[in-house]
């Protein structure tokens, strides 16, 4: 469904992350080329979300550097949708920022019936689907998904994996941080416990 994209690439060199006095992980390197995906594993508190934020460029690593080619789309527990607005208008805001049409993505994720419902009344799973609709509309070549399956029912989880697969086949990059299984062909796994300091 996505048009052909500019080449994208994500390369991290010798990353280390520190939270307070504690070094969460060190010596982490990864390179992702178009069409490749990586699943970041690890127990709670090991630094999955921190790594995602570092890769997104929202946080600075303690050591190391990240090179990004292509824009980044991020899904985490912060929705980025105004809670008091109806879902349709909240998604429309991002659609206009990204200069895209919101309705196709909303329909794909089964949100068409919810567009009049204020975001604050949505359930956890519905919010997650709304965030996915925003992500699809953004058309970013690099997807960073932090716990994308939390709160989703099995149908929505399967849909999420299908969307990620389509994203990869159209030449995108996908990084998933999740403690749940994420079925993607050619998914490399990276266990943060191996880099724990």
């Amino acid at each position: 469904m996505q048009a052909t994209r500019h080449p994208c690439r994500l390369k991290a060199d010798d990353l280390a992350c520190r939270r307070g006095d504690r070094v969460l992980f060190a010596g982490l390197s990864l390179t992702l080329e178009p069409g490749s995906a990586c699943h970041i594993l690890g127990a709670n508190g090991i630094g999955k979300s921190s790594l995602i934020r570092i890769l997104a460029g929202l946080a600075l690593p303690w050591v190391g550097r990240v090179e990004r080619q292509g824009t980044v789309g991020l899904i985490d527990d912060r929705l980025g949708l105004d809670p008091q607005l109806p879902l349709g208008r909240a998604l429309h805001f991002w659609a206009r920022i990204d200069d895209q049409d919101a309705s196709a993505a909303a329909e794909r994720l089964g949100l068409s019936d919810l567009l009049d419902v204020p975001v604050r009344y949505l359930s956890t799973g519905q919010r997650k689907r709304a965030a996915l609709a925003r992500l699809i509309g953004q058309q970013a070549p690099i997807w960073l998904l932090d716990e994308p399956l939390n709160g989703l029912d099995s149908a929505a989880a399967a849909l999420t994996m299908t969307l990620a697969t389509e994203h990869l086949t159209s030449g995108g990059i996908c990084i998933v941080a999740s403690h749940q299984a994420f079925a993607l062909t050619g998914l490399a796994t990276l266990d943060l416990a191996d880099f724990a300091a």
Binding site: A56, G57, L58, T71, V72, G73, L74, D76, R78, L79, G80, L81, D82, P83, W94, I97, D98, R134, Q138, A140
Partner: peptide, 13 residues
């Protein structure tokens, strides 16, 4: 910040 708007704006440059 809590809602993630600043993150999303930052990602869009």
């Amino acid at each position: 910040i809590e809602l993630g708007f600043f993150d999303q704006w930052r990602l869009r440059g």
